[in-house]
């Protein structure tokens, strides 16, 4: 302990002596030094009392947080990848009637009604070969969606950046598989009965509440 006494000034020495007493570390020599300091300046005792009380108050808080920590266990089982997270979230969305119906409409709009006899190109109702009209690749379908959406005004555009969620090397091969988020900007008219704002519930928690106030123009970018 002497190294501190040698290396620091008198202010620090006073602080360290007080600190050692609080931590139960003060040796006989430390106590003697503290008493000598207090003889010259009795506020040492006041500082000691205050610092001790503050230490105990902080420790009470850290103890509470420690009890919370004791209840937090590591997640059990294999973790979901971002893709699995996404799929799970989508499964949740699909159970929500309004959007499920909307998704079904979109599916029909862009891919056409599924043929009851898939692969049978003779039953195209005179339209001809369905493969000639509807693109087969996801990129092709997306292009059609963008084109139709922009024409109708529902799709404003696509952000040039893609948000990378996950990258992983291809097993046994050269290259990396990148899982990303494509950002497409759409617009939709929301009726006043479906408009919500951030508010507070009876417990003071932030929550969504029906919006009854007039909405002003606002932009987040």
């Amino acid at each position: 302990m002497d190294e501190i006494e040698q290396n620091t000034g008198s202010g620090d020495r006073r602080d360290e002596l007080i600190s050692r007493v609080i931590d139960g570390e003060a040796s006989e020599r430390d106590w003697m030094a503290l008493r000598a300091l207090a003889e010259a300046d009795p506020t040492v005792w006041t500082d000691l009392t205050k610092t001790q009380a503050q230490h105990e108050a902080l420790c009470a808080l850290v103890d509470e947080v420690g009890l919370i920590a004791d209840d937090v266990e590591l997640p059990v089982g294999p973790l979901l990848t971002p893709v699995e997270h996404f799929e799970r979230r989508m499964a949740g969305v699909r159970t929500w009637g309004g959007w499920a119906a909307a998704a079904a409409v979109l599916l029909v709009w862009f891919t056409g009604l599924p043929s009851p006899t898939a692969g049978d190109r003779t039953q195209t109702g005179g339209v001809g070969n369905i493969g000639d009209v509807f693109p087969k690749t996801p990129e092709g379908i997306l292009d059609r969606y963008m084109e139709a959406g922009q024409k109708s005004g529902q799709v404003l555009g696509q952000m040039p950046q893609r948000v990378v969620l996950e990258t992983r090397p291809i097993a046994g091969g050269d290259g990396v598989e990148v899982v990303y988020l494509r950002q497409i900007i759409e617009k939709q008219v929301v009726s006043s009965t479906m408009s919500y704002r951030l508010g507070r519930d009876e417990f003071g928690q932030t929550t969504l509440v029906p919006n009854t106030q007039p909405v002003r123009p606002q932009s987040s970018y």
């Binding site: 501190i4 620090d12 602080d15 600190s19 050692r20 500082d47 503050q54």
Partner: peptide, 16 residues
């Protein structure tokens, strides 16, 4: 360890 002790002591003074 000595740095930790010094910082705790100074931190307590600063908080006080």
């Amino acid at each position: 360890e000595t740095t930790i002790e010094t910082r705790i002591a100074r931190g307590r003074r600063m908080l006080r």
